[in-house]
Simulated scan of single mutants.
Amino acid sequence: MASNMWEQTAAMAKQHEQQGGAWLKLANDGDIAVVVFLGEPHPREVVFLDNKFVPFDEKLKAQGHKPSLRVALNVAVYGTREVKVMEQASTFFTNLLQVRAKYGLETWAFEVKRHGAAKDPKTTYSLLPEKQLSPAEVTDFQALRLHDLPKLYAAEAAAAASSTSPAATSSPKAGEPVDVKLAQAMATALKALPREAVDRFLQKFGVQRIRDIPASKGELARAFVDSLVAEYSAESVADVDPFGP
């Protein structure tokens, strides 16, 4: 019994590690998620620079860089029905196309498993059918609200661009907190958004309170708040029932 509780608690801890924010995280070798694939894929040509993927453009092409394909997908975690974003390489997407042709994606939950340690460039992900969904489950999953993938990546790009601006590079002293007026303005804007948006903001900057953001990241935080406001404002307009009272 005690052994079962240890295993159950370990599984719950791993699930909580994967939650929070928009991204589905399989960080370590053997990590598993059971998901339902939703919506359309969002492909991007990117280059891996400075330990991160950046969009491929003419400047990088002129420098001799070659692009690779990354594909983002909306997935719902089967156990919680929480919608996350999974980003994978073209090899995984090729496997997904084969699975889609054989099983279909709307009526199955699939196991995605990581094979490779953290930061191992040879990491791969396996994909196996886990459970066929009932008609009621299919209806529930298809009704879930999806992340707007183009807007999500546009927000990430805007935030990254602001971090390299002159205002950001001439940063204040390390550890100095963000300006009070800026913190208040961001708090006011975030209060008008869903809790999901606030959680995304806090997770991105690794803080529990807005006032804990360092001044060196103030402009980056402001840009990210602006992108969240634009994203969720657009979604709110789209949710209005044109035939309602």
Results as ranks from 00 to 15, higher is better:
residue 61 K to N: 09
residue 201 F to Q: 01
residue 145 R to H: 14
residue 234 A to N: 03
residue 19 Q to S: 15
residue 82 E to V: 15
residue 76 A to R: 01
residue 166 P to E: 05
residue 90 S to L: 10
residue 1 M to N: 07
residue 161 A to I: 08
residue 198 V to F: 15
residue 136 A to N: 11
residue 38 L to M: 07
residue 2 A to G: 02
residue 173 K to L: 13
residue 160 A to M: 05
residue 212 D to I: 06
residue 168 A to N: 03
residue 218 G to K: 04
residue 73 L to C: 04
residue 226 D to A: 14
residue 156 E to A: 07
residue 206 G to Q: 07
residue 127 L to C: 08
residue 153 Y to G: 07
residue 235 E to T: 12
residue 217 K to E: 15
residue 85 V to T: 10
residue 207 V to H: 02
residue 138 V to I: 15
residue 234 A to P: 00
residue 102 K to T: 12
residue 152 L to K: 02
residue 191 K to A: 12
residue 37 F to T: 03
residue 110 F to G: 08
residue 88 Q to W: 01
residue 23 W to A: 15
residue 155 A to F: 02
residue 94 T to H: 11
residue 165 S to Q: 04
residue 101 A to F: 04
residue 186 M to Y: 00
residue 167 A to P: 00
residue 179 D to K: 10
residue 105 L to K: 08
residue 213 I to W: 00
residue 95 N to Y: 01
residue 87 E to G: 11
residue 113 K to F: 01
residue 164 T to V: 14
residue 99 V to E: 11
residue 176 E to D: 09
residue 7 E to P: 01
residue 1 M to K: 08
residue 134 S to N: 05
residue 112 V to N: 02
residue 229 V to G: 05
residue 15 Q to C: 09
residue 73 L to K: 06
residue 115 H to L: 13
residue 21 G to H: 03
residue 35 V to T: 06
residue 3 S to M: 13
residue 141 F to Q: 08
residue 91 T to F: 08
residue 89 A to L: 09
residue 227 S to E: 05
residue 1 M to T: 07
residue 197 A to F: 01
residue 166 P to F: 07
residue 37 F to L: 12
residue 167 A to I: 07
residue 140 D to I: 11
residue 72 A to Y: 07
residue 142 Q to H: 08
residue 203 Q to S: 10
residue 127 L to H: 07
residue 79 G to T: 09
residue 145 R to L: 14
residue 223 A to Y: 02
residue 88 Q to L: 12
residue 123 T to L: 06
residue 203 Q to R: 10
residue 26 L to A: 05
residue 243 F to N: 14
residue 100 R to L: 00
residue 115 H to E: 13
residue 170 S to Y: 08
residue 26 L to M: 06
residue 128 L to H: 15
residue 184 Q to D: 13
residue 109 A to R: 05
residue 78 Y to L: 14
residue 222 R to V: 08
residue 97 L to S: 11
residue 237 V to E: 13
residue 138 V to A: 06
residue 220 L to H: 06
residue 57 D to F: 08
residue 101 A to H: 10
residue 149 L to P: 03
residue 53 F to C: 11
residue 194 P to C: 00
residue 238 A to Y: 08
residue 86 M to Q: 10
residue 22 A to V: 12
residue 205 F to N: 04
residue 114 R to Y: 03
residue 184 Q to F: 03
residue 219 E to R: 15
residue 31 D to C: 12
residue 4 N to D: 15
residue 11 A to S: 12
residue 243 F to A: 14
residue 67 P to C: 04
residue 64 G to R: 04
residue 83 V to L: 00
residue 18 Q to F: 00
residue 91 T to A: 12
residue 52 K to P: 00
residue 187 A to C: 04
residue 7 E to A: 12
residue 128 L to E: 15
residue 91 T to W: 08
residue 14 K to G: 14
residue 80 T to W: 10
residue 72 A to L: 07
residue 49 L to Q: 12
residue 127 L to K: 06
residue 175 G to W: 01
residue 162 S to P: 00
residue 200 R to Y: 09
residue 237 V to H: 07
residue 232 Y to S: 02
residue 220 L to C: 10
residue 106 E to T: 05
residue 35 V to S: 10
residue 159 A to V: 11
residue 16 H to P: 06
residue 35 V to I: 13
residue 209 R to H: 12
residue 25 K to P: 04
residue 10 A to G: 02
residue 168 A to T: 11
residue 191 K to P: 00
residue 190 L to D: 01
residue 43 P to A: 09
residue 232 Y to C: 02
residue 50 D to M: 06
residue 189 A to S: 14
residue 140 D to E: 15
residue 41 P to K: 01
residue 52 K to R: 14
residue 4 N to C: 10
residue 208 Q to Y: 06
